Computed example of a mutant assay.
Amino acid sequence: MSKEGMFWNSTVEELSQGYIYDDQNETYICLVCDEPFECGVIYRRGDVLLEAKKAVQYHIEDDHDSMFDSLLSMDKKYTGLSDHQKELLHYFKRGLADKEIVKELDSGSPSTIRNHRFKFREKEKQAKVFLAIMNLLKSDEKENKNSLVGIHKGAKMVDERYTITVEEKEKVLSTYFDEGVEGPLSTFPSKEKRKIIVLQQILKSFKSNEVYSEKEVNEVLKSKFNDFATLRRYMIEYGFMDRSKDCTKYWVKN
């Protein structure tokens, strides 16, 4: 399963704790940055030595503050929350009373805050019912050529270009990677949806928990297409990768 697949196929409990256990590789994997923690390896945290499960838990706390913050920081298209709602949830997490929140916001009234609390509870109920509906749908639905391909977490825009079926993906990959997906591109597509499919495949050439120099990125992309600068630009533009302001460091965008 791909890194994106691990995140989106995780259970609510796994998303809440921030990691999953890969029993095939006996490894705990952080769902925020995909960093692996292998069972049997001892990890150091200051003067303390930790086993893998404890190490991934402290990793989330040290590097990502908390899963609450990490999930809440995701784009609105994933959370469905406005900036104001996110701010209120931060206050609720801190355990502030309605009057205290009004004081922090310097606006509104305790009754307004109580109304928000009620709406969040209703939203939670709706989410549970919807998850149950989708779970029942999936249990009766075998993956077929019309199943949709998942969207990468770093996507900067989500529109009809991302409505990609398994059949479309397979057809595009066989067309543009005529030597197989491990080989080079025969040509770079001009249509937007095809670009996304091709870029999704090329992204698999990069490790999600590594930082690359521009030269290293170019070397990987050169093996896929002679116009590596175009590939690099689209990797950034479509949110597959990110880079430092001085363009010296590149990484897979989570």
Rank of each mutant, 00 (worst) to 15 (best):
Lys128Gln: 15
Phe206Asn: 01
Gly40Phe: 08
Lys119Gly: 02
His84Leu: 11
Ala132Trp: 00
Ile29Ser: 02
Pro189Trp: 08
Ile20Thr: 02
Leu31Tyr: 05
Thr112Ala: 13
Cys30Leu: 13
Cys33Met: 10
Gly80Gln: 10
Glu13Thr: 06
Glu104Asn: 08
Tyr21His: 14
Ser147Leu: 00
Leu49Val: 00
Lys76Pro: 02
Leu89Ile: 03
Glu26Gln: 14
Glu61Met: 09
Ser10Thr: 10
Tyr176Pro: 04
Arg161Lys: 12
Tyr234Leu: 13
Gly180Lys: 01
Met1Asp: 12
Val211Ser: 02
Lys224Val: 11
Ser223Trp: 00
Glu168Thr: 10
Gly150Asp: 14
Ala132Asn: 00
Asp242Trp: 08
Asp63Arg: 05
Arg121Ala: 13
Glu13Ile: 06
Val217Cys: 06
Asp98Glu: 15
Phe68Gly: 07
Asp75Thr: 09
Leu173Ala: 01
Glu143His: 04
Arg233Asn: 01
Asn226Ile: 09
Tyr19Cys: 12
Ser109Thr: 12
Glu182Tyr: 10
Lys171Val: 15
Met67Ser: 01
Glu87Thr: 09
Ser10Cys: 09
Ser244Val: 11
Lys222Leu: 12
Arg233Gln: 08
Asp65Gly: 03
Lys54Trp: 01
Leu71Tyr: 01
Ile151Pro: 03
Val217Tyr: 05
Val217Phe: 00
Lys169His: 09
Met241Glu: 02
Ile113Met: 10
Phe225Ala: 00
Met1Cys: 06
Lys119His: 14
Gly183Arg: 06
Lys99Gly: 14
Glu168Lys: 07
Pro110Val: 08
Glu26Val: 02
Ser10Glu: 08
Phe240Thr: 11
Thr248Lys: 07
Glu61Gly: 03
Arg121Lys: 11
Ala97Asp: 13
Lys249Gly: 01
Thr11Glu: 11
Glu100Cys: 07
Met235Thr: 00
Val102Tyr: 11
Glu168Tyr: 05
Arg45Asp: 14
Val252Gln: 00
Ser16Cys: 07
Asn254Lys: 11
Lys245Ser: 15
Ile197Gln: 03
Glu219His: 08
Asn226Phe: 07
Val166Pro: 02
Tyr78Met: 14
Leu137Ala: 13
Leu88Phe: 11
Gln85Asp: 14
Val149Phe: 09
Glu237Ile: 09
Lys169Ile: 08
Gly95Glu: 10
Glu4Asn: 09
Phe206Leu: 02
Ser16Phe: 04
His116Ser: 06
Val166His: 10
Leu96Ile: 10
Val102Phe: 12
Lys86Trp: 00
Phe228Pro: 03
Asp159Glu: 12
Tyr250Val: 15
Thr187Asp: 12
Lys54Pro: 03
Asp106His: 08
Thr79Glu: 01
Glu210Thr: 11
Leu105Met: 14
Val129Gln: 05
Ala97Gln: 14
Glu38Asp: 07
Gly239Phe: 05
Lys253Gly: 05
Lys145Thr: 10
Glu237Ala: 13
Leu96Phe: 12
Gln200Gly: 09
Asn218Trp: 02
Lys138Glu: 15
Glu100Asn: 02
Gly46Asn: 11
Glu210Val: 09
Ser186Cys: 12
Val56Lys: 04
Phe188Leu: 15
Arg233Ala: 01
Leu185Gln: 03
Glu61Ser: 08
Glu51Asp: 13
Glu210Asp: 10
Pro189Thr: 14
Gly180Ser: 08
Asp159Val: 07
Asp98Arg: 04
Tyr58Gln: 14
Leu221Asn: 01
Ser205Cys: 07
Tyr176Glu: 05
